[in-house]
């Protein structure tokens, strides 16, 4: 981890998603998009602490995770465009991103679902004596679900090499955590299942990196898992789509403003000399142009693709 690598990752995610928001009204992207803008610091802080061989499972809001874990940008944009060259050959869309060589094992539209898949993957890695850890991303909404509790219990019971990351942006679509949960103590509930758990405030990319890195190091040293981090963050855009939604009335812009003032992208950018920062930005802008051009130029899947990949007939 360096300031350069943090900035590279943060800026890359922010700019890709800004481009997605810009292109979205053209209807070229034929997929619901749940933008991570404002929440990038969590995925970046976590993934900076991981190696390529480590495994990540995510949610439908996983553009940031996918890119931070090293996911191929061309395949991601092509997937959003529904093209044959997409990460899932156009059959998954924004909510089902995958990049196996980068350890991105998939993301799910049904809230909480991948938590259990991550637990099973970690069980397998432990049985196979592999030197890798699994990271399970979830939102605060997922902690309402029964599968969250069942999964944490089993992960703790088996002391799995697993790190749970709760990206708490406080809203499940338009419903605040306090209208869904009697206690605002997700991290404490995780601890009650028998794991090291803490809350990381302020969407602080350094703090996220530092705490997750310590957990990864401990797991690699053979210490028992799992770990749980409740990472406080904030979603700037609407639940799904490219726009803001402060006009809906379920939240007010003044609530978002402290998070926007504390934006991690310029915060880390300011730590770099412009002679370092500008080439990073220029390279990313070029990569984004190339990725969108690739998606535009790629063909849609052939009609015969409708019927492929239902079963493995090998």
């Amino acid at each position: 981890m360096t300031n350069e690598s943090l900035y590279q990752s943060l800026y890359r995610i922010r700019r890709v998603e800004e481009e997605i928001a810009k292109v979205y009204p053209t209807d070229k992207i034929k997929s619901p998009v749940h933008l991570s803008i404002g929440q990038e610091a969590v995925a970046v802080g976590v993934c900076e602490a991981l190696e390529t061989r480590d495994i990540a499972f995510g949610t439908y809001r996983s553009h940031a995770l996918y890119l931070a874990k090293g996911g191929d940008m061309k395949q991601m944009i092509a997937e959003l465009y529904g093209k044959d060259t997409g990460a899932a050959r156009g059959k998954g869309g924004s909510m089902h991103l995958i990049d196996l060589p980068k350890g991105i094992m998939g993301t799910s539209a049904v809230v909480g679902t991948t938590i259990a898949n991550a637990v099973g993957y970690a069980y397998a890695l432990k049985y196979q004596r592999k030197d890798a850890v699994v990271v399970s991303f979830m939102g605060d909404g997922a902690t309402d679900e029964g599968v969250f509790h069942e999964s944490l219990n089993f992960a703790a019971l088996k002391a799995l090499p697993l790190i749970f990351i709760c990206e708490n942006n406080q809203y499940a679509i338009h419903t605040h955590q306090k209208l869904r949960q009697a206690q605002a103590n997700i991290w404490e509930r995780a601890r009650a299942y028998g794991m090291v758990s803490e809350r990381i405030e302020h969407n602080d990319v350094f703090k996220v990196y530092e705490r997750v890195k310590a957990a990864v190091d401990a797991l690699r040293a053979g210490q028992p898992g799992p770990y749980f981090f409740e990472c406080m963050t904030y979603r700037w855009k609407e639940h799904v789509g490219p726009n803001e939604d402060y006009n809906l009335g379920y939240r007010v812009r003044s609530e978002a403003e402290p998070w926007m003032q504390d934006d991690q992208v310029p915060r880390i950018g300011a730590l770099l000399d412009s002679s370092v920062r500008q080439p990073i930005e220029a390279a990313i802008e070029a990569e984004i142009r190339e990725a969108f051009a690739f998606a535009e130029a790629s063909p849609f899947p052939a009609q015969s693709e409708l019927y492929t990949a239902v079963y493995d007939e090998a």
Binding site: I55, F57, M105, G106, T113, T114, I115, A116, N117, A118, V119, G120, Y121, A122, Y123, A124, L125, Y127, Q128, G146, V147, E150, S151, N153, F154, L157
Partner: peptide, 28 residues
């Protein structure tokens, strides 16, 4: 006991875990 084990009463998560194991190359 790594290959043969009883589970908590958690059909939802244990099914999800079985899928995760299968994705990792096991045959649960």
């Amino acid at each position: 006991k790594e290959r043969v084990f009883g589970t908590p009463l958690a059909e939802d998560a244990m099914t999800g875990a079985a899928i995760g194991m299968a994705l990792a190359g096991l045959r649960p």
